[in-house]
């Protein structure tokens, strides 16, 4: 029984990943992401006073989240909702496949794709930062200054956190898809939800000193229901600061991401389980 479920889940995941990885949109976003991430090194004159490595890293991290979020929303919607719109879900769900297996398979396929995307962009960014940090270290030694700090391990941990963050976005998108009636609606609502998730930390901070109580209640409520994606912004301290980030903070961010992913997926399964196909 458990073996059968696992086989179906693996088949749906593998099929989702294969289908998605062959789409031009994925290749385009990977290419675009790499080009933009690398271009940070050539735009360092606009560093607004930051150190060169920090500017390049920030630029690359922003690039991963921006293009990764587009991929997570658009591709996940495409992978899930297009199945319903194009009716490819009919012969699939007419087989002995449970609805939760379908949702979970779609998520895992999309998440695997996001993993490949994250690994590729972080691979390029890591190589860039490593080469440049060595060059800057040589220059600093010659000038008798302290060399800039760069941790490959810290960058790898941050890459995993980014992958988790994109997983939360994909799960959120699946939740919207589970009740959406059109692809455009699914993409629009998922994008707005992503915006709220990303901005709620900033909104809370801005409202902390304000007096408008009902706005604060709305933001606080949204904060309890939707994940705060800014909690994953640990890239600079992890990769560029010698002190790093305590393991507990990294673990709690990872746990936070996993918790929200599971909850959002459970809601998506619940809503999708009774949907007329």
């Amino acid at each position: 029984m458990r073996n059968a479920t696992l086989r179906r889940l693996c088949a749906i995941t593998a099929n989702t990943f294969t289908e998605a990885s062959r789409q031009r949109f994925f290749a385009l976003l990977v290419l675009l992401g790499m080009v933009v991430a690398v271009s940070g090194a050539f735009l360092r004159v606009f560093n607004f006073g930051s150190s060169e490595l920090k500017f390049t890293a920030d630029f690359g991290f922003g690039c991963v989240f921006f293009f990764g979020s587009i991929l997570a929303v658009v591709m996940t919607t495409q992978l899930f909702f297009a199945e319903l719109e194009n009716r490819t879900a009919l012969p699939l769900l007419a087989r002995p496949v449970r609805r939760w297996e379908f949702v979970a398979g779609k998520f895992l396929g999309a998440w695997a794709l996001l993993g490949v995307f994250t690994a590729l962009i972080f691979g390029v960014l890591g190589a860039l930062l490593l080469v440049r940090s060595h060059e800057l270290a040589q220059e600093a030694i010659r000038a008798g200054e302290s060399a800039p700090w760069f941790s490959v391990q810290g960058l790898a941990i941050f890459a995993l956190l980014q992958w988790l963050r994109l997983g939360v976005v994909a799960a959120l998108t699946l939740l919207v898809c589970s009740f959406a009636r059109s692809l455009l609606y699914a993409v629009t609502v998922s994008s707005l939800a992503l915006l709220v998730c990303q901005m709620q930390g900033t909104a809370r901070a801005a409202l902390a000193s304000g007096s408008n109580s009902w706005v604060r209640v709305v933001v606080e409520t949204a904060g309890r229901l939707l994940p705060d994606l800014q909690l994953f912004d640990l890239g600079v301290p992890l990769a560029l600061q010698p002190a790093g980030v305590p393991a507990g903070v990294v673990a709690s961010a990872a746990g936070y991401g996993i918790f929200y992913t599971v909850v959002l997926l459970a809601l998506a399964v619940w809503l999708f389980s009774d949907r007329e196909i």
């Binding site: 179906r8 088949a11 099929n15 294969t18 012969p91 007419a94 087989r95 002995p96």
Partner: peptide
Amino acid sequence: RALSGYLPEAPYFYRHLSGRELVHFYARIS
């Protein structure tokens, strides 16, 4: 559902898969 096979009206399949890959997928699912 394990006892039945279904061909929907105007079927549309994963266009990036080959015919063999598609049938292979449904065999695995079943």
